[in-house]
Design a binder for these strands. Sequence first.
DNA 1: ATTACTATCTCACGAGTAC
DNA 2: TGTACTCGTGAGATAGTAA
Lengths: 228, 228
Amino acid sequence: MPELKVQHILTLAELLAKGARHNFVTITSSSLGKSINKSQQAASKHLLELERDGYLERIRSGQRVSVRITTKGHTEMTRISAILKSSLDSSPSYIEFKGTIVSGMGEGAYYMSTRGYEKQFKSKLGYTPFPGTLNVKLKDKEFIEAKHILEAHLGIMINGFSDGKRTYGWVKCYPAKINNSIEAALITLERTHHDDSVIELISRENIKKATKLSTGSQISIRVPIRSK
Amino acid sequence: MPELKVQHILTLAELLAKGARHNFVTITSSSLGKSINKSQQAASKHLLELERDGYLERIRSGQRVSVRITTKGHTEMTRISAILKSSLDSSPSYIEFKGTIVSGMGEGAYYMSTRGYEKQFKSKLGYTPFPGTLNVKLKDKEFIEAKHILEAHLGIMINGFSDGKRTYGWVKCYPAKINNSIEAALITLERTHHDDSVIELISRENIKKATKLSTGSQISIRVPIRSK
DNA sequence: ATTACTATCTCACGAGTAC
DNA sequence: TGTACTCGTGAGATAGTAA
């Protein structure tokens, strides 16, 4: 689609940067070559081809050669720049997980309702979660990998504590949306009893009840991330 | 400087557009090839090289291959996009002419102070120009060419008229700055008595007096243009 | 259906050089 | 100094094909 050759993009960018949009700019092929990290010959050929294809015009006054980008050249550069920019901007700002609900909300309940965690959830998450976790078995390798990527991002840290009898590890919370609607938090535990392919979620409500989802249901979890 | 190969830019852009910034996106080399207008083999090689150089990661689940752009890849694309954008934005928004003042302010005076022109100058330009024009002999071919480019842009049109005895052609005015300070207007005439290498300027004041410039002085004229 | 190898072709680049 | 030929080299593309 870009009928402008890829190799010429940087050359045009360089000329544009030198101000050749509206005015003729005097330039030598060797200086241009240095700017684009190519030889004098390559720069000369670029100019020749760009001129031939209508992306720039040249005027010679004896030795001096002046160059100006045509509207066509400018349009094309604008287009490419827009493609790049939009492909960068269109990146979704979330990490998505897909999998199926597994198990009950078994032993998670015990931990989640421990006093030491509950207080922190309330203050850092803004609510006291339903006592129990929703476990989701991830569908593919890529989601397991995504979990590692997620861990590189900042989450809400719930500190571990000890109640004298035993110690409880930290819990990291990542606010998330289930099926693009229910507010929840994906949690990672310092001491997990699951393997890598299972993630755990907590929420204000009993997720299964609130959503008619049950063991075996396919769900999607999206964790928004701030793309610095 | 871009250690990312130029040929890979569009490939990365395509993957980015498919959402591969944070999530693994499933893709085949032949579909990617179609997207970037290359062969399946070329797309495959691009993925291989981009992975080798750390711009993306791949995960295979049997036949399926999922791809995600790394931070390095994203950073590099952002950098290139910024280079392009800044080279487009940095374009000066004026057309510049350089030359030397010639002749006196001879016969222009007669026309400029004609009642039919004066009224229009006052209303369209905002002032009644000093009766006389400053003529500038352009220094180089590129400025003569720039004059033609200027003519493709919209100017302020002063209509021609007839006073019964004779007819007067239109005058097109382009507000300009002389030596980056004095407000003036470059004018082009329907019926000019100069050759292409001379431009005429009008101004509220007597330019020569106001600026200590005289015949033979080198001056610069900048005509701002709105880059649509 | 895939991916990715090998072989081949094309063309971008730089060296040398004419002008 | 300049630009821009020719020509040799190799990167990057495709065709064919194996797995």
